[in-house]
Design a protein around this nucleic acid. Structure first.
Lengths: 107, 107
DNA sequence: ACAATCCATAACCATTTGGTTATGCTTAAT
DNA sequence: ATTAAGCATAACCAAATGGTTATGGATTGT
């Protein structure tokens, strides 16, 4: 189940939020504490960003005692990828060429 | 020469702006008038959206008398595609698979 | 010459956004 | 039992955003 494109696009429009998402993608699961050290804004600010990312299903969280561990959701970018797939000439070209190759290989 | 990822992400965060960009991609060059009819907001609103899209280099314009024709810029989505390429596990997986195929074909 | 069209900009407004500090709840540590 | 740590939420604020109507300049049509 994936979030609406709107939520995904809005969530990734903010550079701090992109940075948090990138960090989670690179380093794996992180606590809010760790992310706060990384992000360079206050802990409540980070919590709010995480809420927005959650709404877009770009992150999941897991409570463990007093800590909350967040992790990037692997397939979460699908709505954005699909959008690019449909409307992005540049990307579509690049992708279509590869798809053609695949098709020609199948038989 | 491409715009900063920031501008591209911000520009596409708004649904009206995405709709305008999609319309330009599908139908080709359009005047502000035509886009206004399409977008369902006032002409000045459309002009402002086009300014934001311009800043992201997602559109170009061409003056012709009293009309201004806008068109989608083909390679304009590159910063977003590159970002996905770098950080999007889902997309990367999909793309890498295809790239592998290509490589195995080359020799 | 005059009127109408196309568009951008200005001026304005309500809402959203991204940040802050303050607070309070839960859980861990001493 | 206290104290401290981790986090979310509340309350607040300045700035940005997305919309509107008003305006004016340039171009076209009559």
């Amino acid at each position: 189940m994936q979030a609406s494109p709107n939520f995904v696009f809005r969530a990734l429009a903010d550079p701090t939020r992109r940075a948090i998402f990138e960090e989670l993608t690179r380093q794996g699961e992180q606590t809010v504490h760790a992310l706060t050290r990384y992000a360079g804004v206050s802990q409540p600010a980070v919590s709010k960003h995480l809420t927005v990312l959650k709404r877009a299903k770009l992150v999941r969280h897991r409570r463990d005692g007093r800590e909350t561990h967040y992790q990037a959701q692997p397939d979460s970018l699908a709505p954005m990828v699909n959008w690019l797939d449909q409307y992005g000439a540049f990307w579509r070209e690049r992708f279509d060429r590869l798809e053609d190759v695949l098709k020609r290989m199948e038989p």
